[in-house]
C-alpha cells in the first residue's frame, strides 16, 4: 500500500463513516430518551434506499404497504385502549395521528406513482414515506412494555428486527438495488481523486448533525428531550410526557436513518436485509461514545468507517470480522472508563 492508496481509502472511509455518524447519533438519541436500543435502525435505512430505488424505476414502493399495515395495527391498538378507558373524546385525535398522518404520504404516492419525479422531490417523498415507520413501531411494540428493563426491551428490539427484515422481503422482494448517483462531480486534490458523492455525504452528514445540535440547544422540545434522557422523574414532574418525548426521539432518529439511507443508496448495493450489518457497525461507533456522548459517538463512527475501508482493502471477506473485533479493545477500554449505573432496578 502506498500513500495514495491510503489517502483514497481514508477518503472512502470518511464518507462511509459519515453515514455511520448519522445512524449512530440516531441510536444514541433514541436510547438516551427511551432506553430502547433500536436494533431495526439499519432496516429503516435499507428500506429508504429500496423506496428511493423503486421511485426511480417508477415502481410502486413496498413501503406504502408496510406503513399501511403498521398504521392500521397502531390505530387498532390505540382505539382499543381508548374504548377501554372510555375516553371517547380522544378518538378523532387518535385517528388523525395514527391513521391519517402516517398514510398521507402514502396517499400522495397514489397520485405520483408512475409520474417521473426529479431527484430532490423523490428524496422528499421517500423520507416522508419512511418517517412514520419508527414512531408507529414504537406505539405497537414498545409502548405496551414501556416499564420493562433495558434488556427485555433489547430482546424485543432484536425480535422486531427479524420481523421487519421478513416484511422487507415480502414488500420489497429479494433484489438488491443501487440508485443513480446524486452527483457526478469529481475533483483531484494532490493526485487523489475525490468523488462528489463522498463530498456530498460528508457535507450532508455535517449539516444534519448541526441541525440536530441546534434543535437540542435552542428549542424547548429539544430541551425537553434532553431532560427526559437525564432524569425521567424530573421531566415528568415538569409535565413532560416520556411517551411523547419518545415519539419525538423516534421521529428524529428515523429521519437520521432515512437520510443515511438516501446517502448510502448510490454507493452500496442494498438488499432488504442489508440494514442490520450497517446498523451494527454504526452501533460500534455508538459504543465508543458509551451510548451517551454525541461527539465521541461521531468520532467513533468515523473511525469505524476508516477501519472498515482499510480492512476491505486488505481482505474483503473479513472486513466485517475486523470491524466487530474492534469491539474487544473498545469495550475493554470502556469497562474501565464508563460509570456503571449503581442499581439496575430489577429488584
Amino acid at each position: 500500500m502506498n500513500a495514495q492508496i491510503a489517502a483514497i481509502l481514508t477518503m472512502d472511509g470518511v464518507a462511509t463513516g459519515a453515514i455511520y455518524v448519522l445512524m449512530a447519533l440516531g441510536f444514541v438519541l433514541i436510547f438516551s430518551v427511551t432506553r430502547i436500543v433500536f436494533v431495526p435502525f439499519g432496516d429503516i435505512a435499507a428500506f429508504t434506499a429500496l423506496t428511493l430505488a423503486a421511485l426511480e424505476s417508477r415502481q410502486f414502493p413496498g413501503t406504502v404497504g408496510l406503513v399501511a399495515v403498521l398504521a392500521v395495527a397502531a390505530t387498532a391498538m390505540e382505539l382499543f385502549a381508548i374504548l377501554r378507558a372510555r375516553s371517547f373524546a380522544r378518538i378523532p385525535r387518535a385517528l388523525f395521528f395514527y391513521l391519517v398522518l402516517p398514510l398521507l404520504p402514502a396517499g400522495v404516492m397514489g397520485f405520483v406513482s408512475g409520474a417521473t419525479l426529479n431527484a430532490p422531490l423523490r428524496i422528499i417523498v421517500t423520507v416522508a414515506l419512511i418517517l412514520p415507520i419508527a414512531p408507529l413501531l414504537d406505539r405497537i411494540v414498545f409502548r405496551p412494555i414501556a416499564d420493562a428493563s433495558v434488556l427485555l426491551l433489547l430482546i424485543v428490539s432484536v425480535a422486531l428486527h427479524f420481523a421487519l427484515s421478513g416484511m422487507g422481503l415480502i414488500f420489497f422482494g429479494p433484489e438488491g438495488v443501487r440508485t443513480q448517483s446524486l452527483t457526478d462531480f469529481s475533483v483531484t486534490a494532490a493526485g487523489v481523486p475525490i468523488s462528489g458523492e463522498s463530498i456530498l455525504i460528508v457535507v450532508a452528514a455535517a449539516i444534519f448533525c448541526l441541525l440536530l445540535f441546534l434543535f437540542f440547544e435552542f428549542t424547548i422540545q429539544g430541551k425537553a428531550l434532553q431532560a427526559t434522557a437525564m432524569n425521567r422523574t424530573g421531566a415528568r414532574l415538569m409535565g413532560i410526557r416520556p411517551a411523547h418525548a419518545g415519539t419525538v426521539a423516534f421521529l428524529l432518529g428515523s429521519a437520521m436513518a432515512a437520510i443515511s439511507g438516501v446517502l448510502i443508496a448510490p454507493v452500496n448495493t442494498i438488499f432488504y436485509d442489508s440494514g442490520f450489518i450497517i446498523g451494527l457497525k454504526a452501533f460500534v461507533g455508538a459504543i465508543i461514545g458509551g451510548l451517551v456522548s454525541f461527539p465521541l459517538t461521531a468520532a467513533g463512527s468515523l473511525f469505524v468507517g476508516v477501519l472498515e475501508s482499510f480492512a476491505a482493502f486488505e481482505s474483503s471477506p473479513f472486513k466485517e470480522v475486523t470491524v466487530f473485533s474492534l469491539l474487544i479493545p473498545v469495550l475493554l477500554w470502556r469497562s474501565y472508563t464508563l460509570l456503571q449505573p449503581e442499581e439496575d432496578g430489577e429488584e
Binding site: 430541551k223 434532553q226 431532560a227 437525564m230 432524569n231 422523574t233 424530573g234 421531566a235 414532574l237
Partner: peptide, 11 residues
C-alpha cells in the same frame, strides 16, 4: 419539590 431534587444535572 422532591426529596432527591431531580434536577437536570447537565443543563
Amino acid at each position: 419539590v422532591p426529596e432527591r431534587r431531580e434536577l437536570f444535572a447537565e443543563m
